Simulated assay, not measured.
Amino acid sequence: MSEQVSESWINIDEAAEYLGVKPVTLRTWIKKKNGIPAHKIGKQWKFKYSELDEWVKSGKSAIE
Rank of each mutant, 00 (worst) to 15 (best):
9 W>L: 15
63 I>Q: 14
48 K>N: 07
26 L>D: 01
24 V>D: 13
42 G>K: 11
47 F>L: 00
51 E>P: 00
36 I>E: 00
49 Y>K: 14
17 E>L: 12
44 Q>P: 00
4 Q>P: 01
43 K>E: 04
49 Y>P: 01
42 G>H: 03
24 V>P: 01
52 L>S: 08
31 K>S: 07
49 Y>R: 10
58 S>C: 04
15 A>Y: 00
39 H>A: 07
41 I>K: 13
21 V>R: 06
9 W>Q: 13
54 E>Y: 06
37 P>V: 11
34 N>M: 12
16 A>G: 13
62 A>G: 03
32 K>C: 05
24 V>Y: 14
14 E>R: 04
6 S>I: 06
44 Q>V: 02
46 K>P: 00
36 I>Q: 00
26 L>I: 11
22 K>W: 03
50 S>Q: 12
16 A>F: 07
18 Y>L: 15
20 G>E: 04
4 Q>H: 05
43 K>Y: 02
42 G>D: 02
12 I>M: 09
15 A>C: 05
23 P>C: 03
13 D>S: 12
64 E>M: 08
38 A>G: 08
6 S>G: 06
8 S>A: 14
46 K>M: 10
51 E>G: 00
45 W>E: 03
62 A>C: 05
16 A>D: 10
56 V>S: 02
43 K>C: 01
17 E>S: 15
57 K>T: 07
16 A>Q: 11
11 N>M: 11
60 K>V: 07
33 K>T: 07
58 S>K: 03
36 I>W: 00
40 K>I: 00
50 S>C: 06
34 N>S: 08
49 Y>H: 13
40 K>A: 09
63 I>H: 08
15 A>V: 09
12 I>K: 08
60 K>M: 11
31 K>H: 09
64 E>R: 11
61 S>C: 09
26 L>N: 02
5 V>N: 13
56 V>K: 06
13 D>L: 02
54 E>N: 14
32 K>N: 15
7 E>P: 05
54 E>F: 04
43 K>W: 04
46 K>D: 00
10 I>A: 04
34 N>A: 05
27 R>N: 10
48 K>F: 11
52 L>I: 12
25 T>W: 12
25 T>N: 11
23 P>A: 02
21 V>K: 08
30 I>Y: 03
16 A>V: 08
10 I>M: 15
58 S>L: 06
37 P>S: 09
21 V>S: 02
23 P>D: 05
63 I>C: 12
56 V>N: 01
59 G>P: 13
